[in-house]
Structure formats: structure tokens, C-alpha cells
């Protein structure tokens, strides 16, 4: 199996705060890895390191066979890595001054010099795929949260990434809109996309994940198949976390 992401002994600090501690983790092609943990545990920071939005202090990180240097090192691989790695944010981060379609066309045109007609066709196809083909010419602020997040997914997919990162993609959504976003993610997983997902949606994790990782205070304390982690957690911290989040 091809490894898309490889982390070995990775450490990350915010000032004196040690937020990621000796992280060893690899993600294989086509694998869906769901990362769970309390807020502040470092799970978002972990996936933000994968596309260089956060720098790490020590250890080894390889994405698509290209090594990302620790803080202060040579970051010339970063641009290449970012072309291959899509990201979806909690707050959508759509570009408010561009229409939905232009949001999706921007990166292929600027980064890959895709001709406008091709970028346009891709955008329309992707919008159909995420179920909002009729909203192409609207501005993001005229869409619901769920629709905005689906546009954000389409925008990332337009670069034809080999890996998708999801940073709490449903946490800013009204409850009735969470399902539509999870549906799109479920489809993506089914089509074989490699995904790293930080989420609090335990139902989604159990159903879609190939592997669930539990992070506590910057350390991976447990990982395994979703049924094993959820039904039979070995570590007492995982047990405590799960009993809190699954209780209601």
C-alpha cells in the first residue's frame, strides 16, 4: 500500500505549550482516518501540520513522499504538497467577494493555469456533485451554512487532491445542515478518497472511518477500527472521553 502521510516522532509547541508529543502516524492511500479528542487536545493542529498551515519543531513529516522540513527549514516542497492536499475548514473560509463558481475556479486557474472554459466546466460538474448546481452564480453569503460548506468541499476537490483534510467541518453548522455535509463526505470516502477528518460526529466516525484515532493532550493514546475503539476502548482516558460524548 502507498503511504500518503507519514509522521515520525513529530513535536509541535505553541510557545512553551507542548501541543503535539512524539506523533507517529501514517495514512495509506484510500484510508479514512477520523481523529477524535477533547477540544485543545491538538487534533486540529495535527492535520494543519500536514499542509504546512502549522509548522512543527522536530520529527519527520512526509506527504506524498515529499518531506516537509521542521520550523526554519527549507519549505520549497510546501507549494507542491499543497497542490495535492485539499482542506475544508470549520468556518468554511469561502471567498466572499467571488461567486460560488469563481470560488471553485480560482485555484485551478491561478495554480495550474487551467483554461477558463475547462475550469468552468469542472466547477459546474463539482457543484452538481455536491448537490448545489443551481447556486453557481450566487455569492457565498446568500447560501446556507450547509451549502457553503459543500461549496468549500467542491473548491478543494477542483484541485484534484490526493488527500483531503477536514477540520471540524460540521462544528459551525446548524444541526439540520450537518447531514447534508456528512453525506458529501461519505460519498467521497466511498469513491476512495484518502481523508483525515477531525470531528465530533461519532456516528459518522463509526460508520465511515477505517481507523479512529483518539488524541489526549497532544498524544495518540488509542487507535484502531471504529468498532474496537468505540465498543471496547483499552485506554482509560479514551473510556472517559467516550462516556462523556456518547452519554447524550
Amino acid at each position: 500500500m502507498t503511504q500518503i502521510v507519514q509522521m515520525k516522532g513529530m513535536n509541535k509547541y505553541f510557545g512553551k505549550l507542548h501541543v503535539l508529543k512524539d506523533i507517529d502516524l501514517s495514512v495509506e492511500q484510500g484510508e479514512v482516518v477520523v481523529i477524535i479528542g477533547a477540544s485543545g487536545s491538538g487534533k486540529s493542529t495535527l492535520i494543519r501540520c500536514v499542509n504546512g498551515l502549522e509548522e512543527f519543531e522536530s520529527g519527520h513529516l512526509e506527504v506524498e513522499g515529499q518531506a516537509l522540513a521542521p520550523k526554519g527549514g527549507n519549505q520549497k516542497m510546501l507549494a507542491e504538497i499543497r497542490k495535492e492536499v485539499g482542506m475544508v475548514f470549520q468556518q468554511f473560509n469561502l471567498f466572499p467577494h467571488l461567486t460560488v463558481k469563481k470560488n471553485i475556479m480560482l485555484a485551478p486557474q491561478k495554480v495550474k493555469n487551467t483554461p477558463q472554459t475547462v475550469a468552468n466546466a469542472t466547477a459546474e460538474r463539482l457543484l452538481e456533485r455536491v448537490g448545489i448546481g443551481n447556486q453557481a452564480d450566487k455569492y457565498p453569503s446568500h447560501l446556507s451554512g450547509g451549502q457553503q460548506q459543500r461549496v468549500a468541499i467542491a473548491r478543494a476537490l477542483a484541485m484534484e487532491p490526493r488527500l483531503m483534510l477536514f477540520d471540524e467541518p460540521t462544528s459551525a453548522l446548524d444541526p439540520e445542515m450537518i447531514g447534508e455535509v456528512l453525506d458529501v463526505m461519505r460519498e467521497l470516502a466511498k469513491e476512495g478518497m484518502t481523508m483525515m477528518v477531525v470531528t465530533h460526529e461519532m456516528g459518522f466516525a463509526r460508520e465511515v472511518a477505517d481507523r479512529v484515532i483518539y488524541i489526549h493532550e497532544g498524544q495518540i493514546v488509542e487507535q484502531g477500527k471504529p468498532d474496537d475503539v468505540f465498543d471496547n476502548p483499552q485506554n482509560e482516558r479514551t473510556q472517559a472521553f467516550l462516556s462523556r460524548v456518547l452519554a447524550h
Binding site: 499542509n51 504546512g52 498551515l53 507549494a79 499543497r82 497542490k83 492536499v85 485539499g86 482542506m87 475548514f89 468556518q91 473560509n93 469561502l94 471567498f95 466572499p96 467577494h97 480560482l106 485555484a107 491561478k110 495554480v111 473548491r155 478543494a156 484541485m159
Partner: peptide, 24 residues
Amino acid sequence: GQTEAGLSLGLSRTQTFWSIIWPQ
């Protein structure tokens, strides 16, 4: 988040600035 979105899509810092940040 606007800068992060631009960078994550593979745009350079300069491209991110002039096509995303500056117009807004």
C-alpha cells in the same frame, strides 16, 4: 482564514494576497 484557504489551495503568498485579501 482567508489566507489559510488560499494557501491550502496551493496559491502562493503573493497570489493569495492580490486575488483574495486585497479585493476584500
